[in-house]
Computed example of a mutant assay.
Amino acid sequence: MGKSRIAVICSLATAVSMLTAGCGQGLLGGGSDAGGDKGPIPLGMLIPQSGSEAAIGPYMKNAAQFAVDEINGKGGVLGRKLELKVADDACDAQTAVAGANKLVTQGIKISVGGYCSGATLPTLPVFGKANIPMIIPAANSQELVDQHLKHVFLINGTGSQQATAAMAWITKQGAKSVALVHDNTSYSKDIAVRTQQLLDAPGGAETALLEAVTPKESDYSANINNILAKKPDFVYWTGYFQEGGLIIRQLRQAGYKGGIMVGDGSVSEKLAEIAGSEAGEGVFATMTQTPETLQGAEGWIDSYTKKYGAGPGPYSNQAYDAVRLAAEAVKQAGSTDGAKVIAALEGINGFQMFSGPLKFTADHTLATGGFQILVVKSGKFALQDALK
């Protein structure tokens, strides 16, 4: 990071400050909406507001609304205000489909949500049929990419990129035998299997075990016994924080002394709370940028905190950028028509986000995942290594 990261954040701040009705190069002013609509431009956001991952929902919702309010405060887009419509997906496929259909009936023009990949995947055809572009801020299973759908864009690192980051850190730690543990969801299994493929390549560490657990259980002793029987010196959990915290606690209680790392779905202070302060301390995580690890973002964090009474959490910055990117695409398209917005997104080149200047690959993903290694210190995740 360093000076280059500070430059990116400064450029981001400059971009936001240019959102004025007459600037011509910002998001606002000029252009026309070929659809002829005159009212607010509705953006839809599916996030977990209930269920085991509900703690993440408010971070994403607040950050998205923060961006909406900033843009509207400068006059809106194409002379129209933005409006955020939120629906619960509970990180559940059936709930997510119902929520997506609800947002479609509410007339949203762009989707800026998606946290759990397993809940996001079944919404792809719902939004696709309605010609609604999807800017996905968090969900990142490679399965989302492998659908090769024109209306789907990811602004978080992919499962493949996360597996590569995991492999790099596991190798750096000198691990010889690794247990990979997942929850059989699309996101979690995808990362575990891809990490296994990298580990088992010539010169990599040995995969001691690929273990699947059942989500929402309270006792993982059978899985813990399976792991311990293989005597790994490193465990990588790729699921979510609710189960992750329990597995970490039960591993330590069973006497496991080796290294533990979790995927980005477990990056929450709730993980350490569930694991317990002693068991959770020193746990590593593969994670894209969080507000706390972004150098130069202190002003944005302060403004967010003043507005909502608490600091931004994981995926706040991605949700904020999803709205800004949606607004930029509408501006460049001169329309809210789905096909025109998709074409505008494909043509984006250099748009400043927290992750850096944006230009999508042919697969509608980031060129680099931007994964970092975090570590739990005093119950909170902090930057360990930028994996440069």
Rank of each mutant, 00 (worst) to 15 (best):
S188V: 01
D183W: 00
I274F: 08
M18D: 07
K3Q: 07
H151N: 06
G356F: 03
Q253A: 15
G31P: 04
V104I: 08
E83L: 11
Y320N: 14
A55Y: 14
K340Y: 09
L28G: 06
A15H: 11
K331M: 04
M261Y: 07
K81F: 05
I155S: 07
G36L: 05
T238G: 06
V126I: 03
G75Y: 00
A367M: 11
E83T: 09
T286R: 10
A64I: 09
I373G: 02
P58C: 04
E83G: 07
L78R: 01
K231P: 04
Q318W: 02
A175L: 04
Q196P: 05
G245I: 11
I9D: 13
F241H: 15
K331L: 04
N156Q: 13
K388N: 12
T336Q: 09
L103C: 04
G276R: 00
G280K: 03
Q196R: 10
K230M: 12
K359V: 03
V8G: 09
L210K: 05
A119Y: 01
P48Y: 12
Q253N: 13
S50H: 11
K85N: 12
I247F: 10
Q295H: 15
D363F: 07
S50F: 06
M18V: 11
G239M: 06
E281H: 09
E211N: 09
L271F: 10
I6M: 12
Y187A: 10
G26F: 01
D92Y: 02
Q142V: 00
K85R: 13
L180Q: 05
A130M: 06
Q250C: 14
C116Y: 01
A15P: 01
Q65S: 04
N225C: 11
G356A: 10
W169R: 03
T195N: 07
S277V: 07
D89V: 00
P291I: 08
I110W: 00
D233F: 05
V77E: 00
S221G: 13
T290A: 13
E143W: 11
A297T: 07
L271H: 10
K359E: 15
T238N: 06
G114V: 02
I373H: 08
N156M: 08
G296M: 00
